[in-house]
Amino acid sequence: MPTASSDTKRRALGKGLESLLPQRNAAPTPVPAIHAAAAPEPAGRPLEIPLDHIERNPWQTRKHFDEAQLAELAQSIAATGVVQPIVVRPIPPLATQPPGHNPMRYQLITGERRWLASRKAGKTTIPSIVRQVADEQVLEMTIVENLQRTDLNPMEQARAYQRLSQEFKLTQEQMATRTGKERASVANFLRLLRLPEAVQAKVEGAELTFGHARALLALESPEAITSAAQKVVALSFSVRQTENYVQGLINPEAKEKKDKPQQAQTEDPNVREAEDRLRRTLGLKVKIEDKKGKGRVIIEYSGLEDFDTLLEMLGDK
Rank of each mutant, 00 (worst) to 15 (best):
P2Q: 01
T3V: 00
S5E: 09
D7Y: 15
D7I: 13
L17S: 03
E18G: 05
L21N: 06
L21S: 03
N25K: 12
P28Y: 11
P28V: 05
P30R: 03
A36Q: 15
A37V: 14
A38W: 06
A39I: 03
P42N: 01
A43V: 10
I49C: 08
L51N: 01
L51P: 00
I54T: 09
E55M: 03
R62T: 03
D66L: 04
D66Y: 03
A68W: 08
Q69S: 12
Q69A: 12
I77Q: 10
A78R: 15
A79I: 06
A79N: 11
V87G: 04
N102F: 12
Y106M: 05
Y106E: 02
L108F: 06
R114E: 06
W115F: 14
A117D: 06
D135R: 05
V138Y: 05
L139D: 06
V144A: 03
T150R: 07
P154W: 03
M155A: 01
E156A: 14
A158G: 11
Y161K: 07
F168A: 10
L170M: 15
E173R: 15
E173Q: 14
R178P: 01
T179F: 07
A184F: 11
L190M: 09
L193F: 09
L193E: 08
A198Y: 00
V199M: 07
K202C: 01
V203M: 01
L216D: 10
E220Q: 13
P222T: 07
A228W: 02
Q230F: 00
K231A: 04
V232A: 05
L235T: 14
S236T: 15
S238M: 06
Q241P: 01
Y245L: 11
L249H: 05
P252W: 00
E256A: 15
P261W: 01
Q262A: 10
E267M: 10
N270H: 10
N270C: 00
V271N: 03
R272K: 15
E275A: 11
R279G: 06
R279P: 02
R280C: 10
K287E: 15
V297G: 11
E305H: 05
L310I: 07
